[in-house]
Write a protein that binds this DNA or RNA. Structure first.
Length: 483
RNA sequence: GGUCCCAUCGUCUAGUGGCCUAGGACAUCACCCUCUCAAGGUGGAGGCACGGGUUCGAAUCCCGUUGGGACUGCCA
């Protein structure tokens, strides 16, 4: 006996939505723990918003997350003939009827009705099928359809709350509810794991699936099991919006989030591993994930927590791994891909890979995303110190003793043994001679050397920079301060 | 409006009738560590929406209320 077959069926939008990523992950985990098959099917039938290249974003996103699919990508547009076969079978067996009502006519007729929606006007009018008629599904007047949901249990929908919905447009295009179900039948999908927003249309699909099973023209297929995942919401508790919320997985990749961290965080949205530890390897995710344990309520996509988790993943990297991971942000010219909209502050000539490998450990524990690295180490590679004006004013220009500190440092550093420890002691001493604590005396020096008040440890940085550069920068800061 | 879903700290969650004086994580506050910034350590504040039941006993089961959300198109 073979394992379950699951799929994700996103429509191409040019990028991968975090909601799609979460759905993909849960499908992927489910299939991987049970020896199943994970399929990618791209629903590209809405011609108005479809471009060939748009599907690349989804594939690239899945690949980045390490959620590669076993079958596909299939394009729904290639499966159109199957949709027509199914629609014709439903029509031939009396499940569908032609309707020539316009939206305006329906609105006019039903505006006073207690129940909104189509009123069944054409049900028994025997309208002739033309290119002006759509095909509607005849929903039973009575009874219910029960959706068996692995996460939520059985959900009962009364038939009288559904109108006779359109299945085939007047131009012949088969609409989503049927097309989607037909494709799932074709691909022998056993578990439909998708967003909760699709729950209300599920009864339509179940009804048509069942109807299809009664059509002699088409093969009967067992109903799949459903699992509707809780929505991912924003701070306003609304479904994540493509326009207003940062939902592009690519943008997280470009900011320097690690795929493993991203996956780990996504897994926590609506589910949690056993025990108190939530940072767990993918193998644990696969092993412990259970569809029936998935939460019922919506989850807020919290970038702060994602970022914290990413920092933990970055710190857990070996130095070699960290340097490798940082390459796209610090030396894009030697990287296979480069994050978009990210300018490296230095040139290829200015960048010194060897120096970077020596400073890497100093920044590894200080960044939460890889994209933060350049700003933190730019003073190592730029010829001119990247001064932060506010810091310069505060630490040097407006500080009465700052120039004395710099002058003394210039003198002391000219001859001191060139090591972080010696520089540390030297700074300590020259500060004491002015009655300053180290935290005070290092400030102007730090600003002179790095241009800012935050960053990697000063004395290690100076050691790596070398005596010449350090003295030059001290002189430069003094000059800039007008001394 | 109708149908459906949902309801534990600000957020993500653990909890499936007694281990709950409700646990963890992020965020937040304080302190410690410290050459800056982080990281790290310690500690604090903070929650079962409300009301009825059922039960010896309810965050856990039932009903109602309230609140939030999704869907309601010849989009997907």
């Amino acid at each position: 006996m073979s394992g379950p077959r699951v799929r994700i069926a996103p429509s191409p939008t040019g990028f991968m939505h975090v909601g799609t990523a979460r759905t993909a992950l849960f499908n992927w985990l489910f299939s991987h723990q049970s020896g199943g098959v994970f399929i990618l099917r791209i629903e590209d039938t809405d011609a108005e918003r479809n471009r060939d290249e748009w599907r690349e974003g989804i594939i690239a996103g899945l690949h980045w997350l390490g959620l590669d699919f076993d079958e596909g990508p299939f394009l729904q547009s290639d499966l159109l003939p199957d949709h027509v076969v199914a629609a014709e079978a439903l029509f031939a067996n009396g499940y569908l009827y032609p309707c020539d009502c316009t939206r305006e006519e329906i609105d006019e007729r039903t505006k006073g009705n207690a129940k909104p929606g189509y009123d069944g006007h054409c049900r028994d009018r025997h309208v002739a099928r033309t290119d002006q008629t759509a095909l509607r599904f005849r929903v039973p007047d009575e009874g219910t359809t029960v959706v068996h949901d692995v996460i939520r249990g059985d959900i009962t929908f009364a038939h009288d709350s559904y109108e006779d919905f359109i299945v085939v447009r007047s131009n012949g295009v088969v609409l989503y509810p049927l097309a989607n179900a037909v494709d799932d039948r074709t691909m022998k999908i056993t578990h439909i794991i998708r967003g909760e927003d699709l729950l209300p249309t599920t009864p339509k699909q179940v009804m048509m699936w069942e109807a299809l099973n009664h059509c002699p023209e088409v093969e009967s297929v067992d109903h799949p099991k459903y699992a509707h995942l809780p929505m991912l919401v924003n701070e306003q508790r609304k479904k994540l919006s493509k326009r207003k919320d940062p939902v592009a997985v690519e943008s997280y990749r470009d900011q320097g989030y690690l795929p493993e961290a991203f996956v780990n965080y996504l897994a926590l949205l609506g589910w949690s591993p056993r025990g108190e530890e939530e940072i767990v390897p993918r193998s644990t995710l696969i092993e412990q994930f259970r569809l029936e344990d998935v939460s019922h309520s919506p989850a807020f996509f919290d970038v702060k927590k994602l970022t914290h988790m990413n920092g933990e993943y970055i710190r857990a990297l070996s130095l070699e791994q960290f340097i490798e991971a940082a390459t796209p942000w610090v030396a894009p010219w030697s990287s296979e891909w480069t994050p978009s909209d990210r300018d490296v502050p230095w040139t290829r000539e200015q960048f010194d890979p060897s120096l970077f490998s020596h400073v890497a450990h100093l920044v590894q524990e200080r960044v939460a995303t890889l994209g933060e690295i350049p700003a933190m180490v730019s003073f190592f590679f730029l010829d001119d110190v990247p001064f932060d004006d506010v810091t310069f004013e505060k630490a040097i220009a407006q500080d009465g003793t700052a120039k004395n500190v710099l002058t003394l440092a210039l003198d002391a550093f000219a001859t001191v043994e060139w090591s972080a420890d010696a520089l540390h002691h030297s700074t300590l001493q020259l500060g004491e001679s002015l009655g300053l604590a180290l935290r005070k005396s290092q400030a102007p020096i730090r600003c002179a050397i790095t241009g800012t008040s935050v960053g990697p440890p000063l004395f290690e940085s100076m050691e790596l920079l070398g005596r010449e550069v350090v003295l030059e920068r001290l002189r430069g800061a003094l000059a800039r301060a007008g001394a």
